[in-house]
Each structure stands twice: as structure tokens, then as C-alpha cells.
Design a protein around this nucleic acid. Structure first.
Lengths: 243, 243
DNA sequence: CGCCCGATTGAACTCACTCAAATACTGTGG
DNA sequence: CCACAGTATTTGAGTGAGTTCAATCGGGCG
């Protein structure tokens, strides 16, 4: 029932780099299985050293960190094509947890094979570094947003980036995208309270810039949203490796 | 006048991994020179694709991102042993800028040699990924701080982490460490205003937990500071690679 | 039907921000 | 050696963006 790497639907997206026959073959051998999880399952635990690495085939989720007193920071939203668990494989342990918000299908790799990859497949090792480095880049953007932007700017920023990402993944229908999270999740990702997030979303809805109703985001005016969010250069549409 | 890698003073610190003869030799061949810069020099420009990579030999600086309207987020403080420019080498361009706050001496590497490294030195390639992944980890921590902690918690958190890092680098004298930044820099790193940063520092000084006067931090009660900051596990004292 | 969870709205509060001005320090030129 | 300008720190006062508390609404499900 498992998808062969050569038939992987994700590879067809222009968002992802072309792969050589050889690379596909190696990737296939690297793959140790698939995993399906129910909504609200913890895929990787904060602080754990998981024996596995994952690539998200479909479904959405989030990465998060919790403070000892329970406050939670959502680090990023997880979408198809995302590679999970690198920190746990390279470092002793994961710096954040990952949970599947919807049901999710994941491609599973053995952590212990990582070294083989570095030893015998330098292009793929390079790709891994690319991924880590890109993640770092994106976290820098998030940090700037959470640290410097106002609530209105934050929400607009998040909406623009989400829709851009969704578009690159073929998840956007016209101006609409499924977004199966709670307002609390968005609030926790931007360092805002739930109430204020709700009120700010209401304002953007009234102004007919973006709505998020019944789990569907509808971006009506991405130009103006980008302007509010102070987004200049184009976000993450560049081709990236797929593991 | 240049330091040979085998004599590199940083390598003597227990903070950094042991290196084999072979690794030292390669590192030496990878090294293309040294660079000294005056205080307040931009080492890497935001959005640029620099042809060089650096390891900081000594001096301090900061990584930052600026919004189109001038607001600035300080991403992290740069200390000796830090590896700079990986994003520019792997991605098309740097996601943040780097400036030397004090005068700084840097070890210079050619960006174009990166591929050789992946091809012929898998252990070092692994180390590079380690660094990127650790940076990501740390940015996650910062994000959680900026997004979730209160001003008092933020400042306490920053002071604890800085002193821990300084200690690992042998920059701490008893409880004191040189910290050649402006309050504005700390404020920009935590998403606080200058004024509030100043007042919060004053409170911590009155309570005799930490003082920061004349460019010197004096941590008087790290226990209580850690408690305020909600820091549980020990920070970054684990051994790391040195490039 | 009743329960639970998430979204929504109103109201009061407060933490952190902005504005403003004084003080302290450093380097420069006369 | 002093005057002056520019920069960083400190302090006070008033304001406001965003928080917290609280209550209601609405849909899905057992």
C-alpha cells in the first residue's frame, strides 16, 4: 500500500527539486516504511531522541515548544513535504515537539541511516543542510515578526505566508485554502492572546482582505495584506529538496 | 601572522569537539585567510550572497534582520567560535545581516569549497548540518521567549544564557563578563522597547540578581534568575563542532 | 437533550510603549 | 584644556495596544 518514491505525488510539484534516478533509488532504500496517524497525535515529543525521521506525505500539523508553566509557542505549521526530526537525529534530542493536527501520512526513515547518507550521498547530505538552513532562515523571519510587528501586521503576515506556501503545494483553490487549526494555534504562533487574535481577524474580515471561517482561509486581497504586513521580497516559492 | 588551525586557541576549549589530525589538516586547507574588522563593521549584508564564510576568532557582534520601515530584530549575539554565512552559501542569499560590534578577527573560507567538503569530508559536512540544526534549535528557544515570556522573564532569560555561553567560552571572570552592546541591542533581541528594557534591568539590579554596568555583566544570583526565566534544562554547554 | 469545545463579544485592566527631558560619557576641534 | 556635539543611559509621566476575565453563542456528538 506504500507509495514508491518514484511515484511520490509530492515530487511532481514544481516546488520540489528534480531528482536523478540514482537519488530516487537511494531515497527508496533509505525509506523504512510509512506511518499513518490520527488527528491530534504527537509525532515527535519535545526533548525526546526519536529513532526516526519523517517526511510528511499529507496532512497538517504543528511544531511547538512549551514552557515549564504550560505556555506554548507554536514554532511553525507543518505541511506536506516537510522533513521532521532532523534535530533529534543530529543533536541528542528534539528542541520542539510535533503534532499532527489532521490525520497525517508520513514517510519513515531510520535515524541510524543518516550517517550512510553523509558518507555515500553528498548531494543528499547537502540537501539536508539546505533544509536545516532554510528552517533557520524561516525562524529568523518569524522571530522578526513576533518581536517587531504589531498584532495587525502579524496576522496579515501569517496569512500571506500561509497562502503562498499553500499555493506552492497546490493546496489553494483560487483564493481559498483548507487551514485546519484553531485560532488558539495561530495566536500561539504569533505571541498574541486568543481574544486579540480573534478581534484582529474580525477586522481583516470586515475590511474584506482575508477571512478564515470554518477551517478555510480566503485571501481576498493579498496585495494589501502584504502591504500591511510589510512584506517585500517574495516568500518561499523557491524550489527545495524533498527527502 | 595568521593562526594555524593546529594552533587555534579556540580548539583548546572543552566546548569544542576534538578534531583528528586529518580534520585539522583539511580545515587548514579549507581556510583561505583571515580578516580583521573595526568596530561597527558590517561583516555580512542582509540579502546578499557573500562569497565567503567565516569563523569568529575573537570579538563580538550580532545577527539582525530589518523590516522595510527600519525596525530591527536582533536574531542572536555573535561570539567567538560562531560560524557565519552558511545561509548565504547554501541558499541564494543571507536571511540576516551580521555586524561586528567590537573589533573582530575572522577566519575566512571560500564558499566555493563547500561542495568539496560535502564530497570528501562527510564528518565535516555532518558538523555543518549540526551547526545549522543547532542554530535552528536556538532560534526556537528565542522565539518561545519573545513570543511567550514577560519582560522580566525575557531579560532574566537572556542574562542566564549569555553568561552560560560566555562561561563555556572562557569569557567569564567569576561572575563577570564583558558585554559590549547597547541596551538598544538587547531590547531589539527581545522585542522590547529601550525604555522598558532599561527599567527592567534596573529592577534586577536593585534585587541584586544581575547588573550590567559599563559594558560588564555581573550575574550575582544565577539560580534565582533561572527560576524567574523559567529555564529548566541546562543550556548550551554541550560540545560542538568548530569550523 | 445535554455536553464540550471553539468562536465571538464586551468590559476592565495592565504591562509595556511613547514622549520628553535630564544626566553621563566620549571623542573632536579650537 | 575646555567647549561642544553626538551618543547612551536613566527617570518621570501619560497613553494605549493587547491582555485577562467573563459571558454568550453555535455546532458536533454521544
Amino acid at each position: 500500500m506504500q507509495v514508491k518514491c518514484r511515484d511520490c505525488p509530492l515530487r511532481k510539484l514544481s516546488l520540489f527539486d528534480e531528482m536523478t534516478e540514482d537519488e530516487v533509488a537511494f531515497q527508496q532504500s533509505f525509506k523504512s516504511g510509512e506511518m499513518s496517524v490520527a488527528p491530534h497525535t504527537t509525532v515527535l515529543m519535545e526533548g525526546s531522541k526519536a529513532p526516526q525521521l519523517f517526511t510528511v506525505l499529507n496532512g497538517m500539523g504543528l511544531r511547538y515548544k512549551t514552557l515549564p508553566d504550560g505556555r506554548r509557542q507554536v514554532i511553525s505549521f507543518v505541511m506536506p513535504g516537510d522533513f521532521l526530526g532532523l534535530q533529534g537525529a543530529i543533536q541528542a534530542e528534539m528542541g520542539h515537539g510535533v503534532e499532527a493536527t489532521t490525520k497525517m501520512r508520513l514517510c519513515v526513515f531510520r535515524r541510524s541511516d543518516i550517517w550512510t547518507l553523509f558518507k555515500n550521498h553528498p548531494e543528499r547530505a547537502y540537501d539536508l543542510t539546505w533544509l536545516a538552513s532554510t528552517e533557520e532562515h524561516f525562524l529568523g523571519e518569524s522571530l522578526a515578526t513576533v518581536g517587531q510587528r504589531s498584532a495587525m501586521e502579524k496576522i496579515a503576515w501569517a496569512m500571506v505566508l500561509l497562502i503562498q506556501r499553500g499555493r506552492a503545494l497546490g493546496l489553494v483553490n483560487g483564493t481559498r485554502m483548507r487551514f485546519p487549526f484553531r485560532q488558539q494555534d495561530l495566536a500561539d504562533s504569533l505571541g498574541l492572546s486568543l481574544v486579540h487574535t480573534n478581534k484582529t481577524l474580525a477586522k481583516l474580515r470586515e475590511r474584506k482582505l482575508v477571512s478564515w471561517i470554518d477551517g478555510v482561509i480566503n485571501v481576498q486581497d493579498i496585495e494589501q495584506l502584504s502591504q500591511i504586513a510589510l512584506i517585500d521580497r517574495e516568500g518561499w516559492t523557491r524550489a527545495r529538496p524533498l527527502m
